[in-house]
Design a protein around this nucleic acid. Structure first.
Length: 124
DNA sequence: AAGCTGACTATGG
DNA sequence: GCCATAGCCAGCT
């Protein structure tokens, strides 16, 4: 568990300012597609952690600031993101796809999975 | 020990 | 695109 958490924190720490990613992307980078909730729980646990985790750069797949309520005061997460040059409207990141940071791609790890092929269309 | 909850996501209608 | 369902893992009651 500590190892998995450490890996999650390691990825979150590597998110460059002004960029955001999603729980699922991190989970997928670790190999557990269904572990998106675990990432959220790790973020929650990161609060009482000595090191600083930019959890505000992690949002859900819609770019919605679902975890803003866990930053002590609601609005902190949005403020942090806006201070990095992002725009948030209605708790949602504007041009989310444009600021999205894919850990599996940016980190260039071996788990890089390409979704070039569409299994539905291929119909092997 | 069993069940519920949660900062989630994918899929089917 | 929206709603309902299911799968997922860890922690808490």
């Amino acid at each position: 568990m500590n190892e998995l958490y450490q890996r999650i924190y390691d990825i979150v720490r590597q998110i460059p300012p002004g960029r955001v990613t999603s729980y699922g992307a991190i989970a997928a980078c670790l190999g557990s597609s269904g572990g998106a909730r675990l990432v959220g729980w790790a973020m929650n646990a990161s609060h009482h952690l000595p090191c600083t985790i930019p959890a505000h750069r992690v949002v859900n797949r819609h770019g919605l600031l679902t975890g803003k309520h866990h930053f002590g005061t609601p609005g902190t997460m949005q403020e942090l993101l806006e201070s990095e040059g992002l725009t948030i409207v209605d708790d949602q990141i504007v041009h989310f796809a444009d600021h999205f940071w894919n850990p599996a791609k940016e980190l260039e790890n071996p788990f890089t999975f390409r979704i070039d092929i569409d299994p539905k269309k291929e119909q092997i």
